[in-house]
């Protein structure tokens, strides 16, 4: 389903050395490693936000090196959440549904379902800057999974969350795995929150990356 074959890239003084990783369909992989080793770079390369210099990226058994970001169909939760500042929480969650032309009623129902699951009901009309860090993270999580992507990539989903919210995210992922069973890649330095539901851990070695 996802395969990185000797994928490497260089951005300024940062170099991601040739990295190989294979995640089968419906598996959940946790990527761990020290800060600055390239965990986020791997996630961004997967989503197409970083172009690959060397190696091959396979998505759904197809070479994806040059597939545009919008056509990769990956639900992505970025580390910095990057919510759309001009939109309400509801519009943020529903953005993917809108651009994929979901009917209004279906869209409203999906937003409502996610708001229930991630306890966002009271916040739907707010804008991102009126939310705390944890609330923003939950909104970004809802936005990433709204369109039922078959591949989900989560970059530090547990950062800025209290323990209750972390449990909420873990339960949500567990629920997703039992229902739609997407392929999940989680970049985290808190793997203890996801160990129970993950299939394997890939540790990015600090010696293999060169950061200034």
């Amino acid at each position: 389903m996802i395969e990185l074959i000797d994928v490497g890239l260089q951005r300024g003084s940062f170099r991601l050395p040739a990295t190989s990783l294979k995640i089968d369909a419906r598996q959940c992989c946790v990527i761990t490693g020290a800060a600055g080793t390239g965990k986020t770079t791997i996630a961004e390369a997967l989503c197409g936000l970083q172009s690959i210099d060397t190696g091959t990226l396979l998505l759904r058994d197809q070479v994806a090196n040059n597939i545009p970001v919008a056509q990769r169909g990956i639900g992505y939760l970025p580390q910095d959440v990057a919510l759309f500042p001009n939109m309400s929480v509801s519009a943020n969650i529903g953005f993917g549904l809108s651009v994929n032309r979901w009917p209004k009623e279906k869209k409203r129902a999906r937003i409502s379902e996610l708001a229930d699951q991630l306890q966002l009901n009271e916040l739907l009309q707010r804008v991102p800057r009126q939310l705390s860090g944890g609330q923003q993270k939950r909104v970004a999580m809802a936005r990433a999974i709204a369109i039922f992507p078959d591949i989900i990539c989560l970059d530090e989903p547990f950062v800025s969350l209290d323990d209750d919210s972390k449990t909420l995210i873990t339960d949500l992922l567990s629920d997703l795995r039992s229902k739609s069973a997407p392929t999940i890649l989680v970049v985290t330095h808190q793997p203890q929150w996801i160990t129970e539901i993950s299939d394997f851990e890939y540790r990015v070695q600090s010696r293999s990356a060169n950061t200034a």
């Binding site: 936000l49 545009p68 056509q71 970025p78 910095d80 990057a82 936005r143």
Partner: peptide, 18 residues
Amino acid sequence: HAGRIEGIAETLGASRWQ
């Protein structure tokens, strides 16, 4: 600010015009 959030919007399937 635009580069970052634009990239994220594209991951959700939005065209460049959208």
